[in-house]
């Protein structure tokens, strides 16, 4: 089994924001809201991340409408969901382990 490295914070939040169809600007706004303005995605960062997630098939275009007025929307794929779930398991493990430190403080 290939050992997966941890998702970056950017990837984590983009995948999360794509649990439903969303466009670039919508992702930025949702991530800002979720993190109370702590994570403000740069447009260049988002552009690069969306392209690389598309290549990995973790996300896909939601609707390829020919009418150019419509903003391009993306959505998470099953593969993306699996990657996200693996990350959540890893994060839960971290939180669980961190309790050892709390116990020490008690």
């Amino acid at each position: 089994m290939i050992k997966e490295i941890a998702l970056t914070e950017t990837t984590f939040y983009i995948l999360l924001a794509l649990r439903h169809p969303n466009h670039g600007y919508g992702i930025i706004q949702e991530v800002e809201k979720l993190t109370s303005n702590r994570v403000v995605l740069g447009a260049g960062t988002l552009y690069g991340a969306l392209n690389s997630l598309m290549k990995k098939n973790w996300i896909e275009l939601y609707s390829e409408e020919i009418s150019s007025r419509k903003k391009k929307q993306y959505i998470i794929t099953d593969l993306g969901r699996q990657a996200f779930e693996r990350e959540v398991i890893r994060l839960k493990e971290l939180i669980n382990c961190s309790k050892l430190m709390e116990d020490l403080n008690d």
């Binding site: 970056t8 914070e9 950017t10 994570v39 995605l41 740069g42 260049g44 960062t45 690069g48 991340a49």
Partner: peptide, 13 residues
């Protein structure tokens, strides 16, 4: 106005 918001994408850029 920051195009690149994390270290990974800054390095790549």
């Amino acid at each position: 106005f920051e195009l690149y918001s994390d270290l990974d994408s800054k390095i790549e850029h």
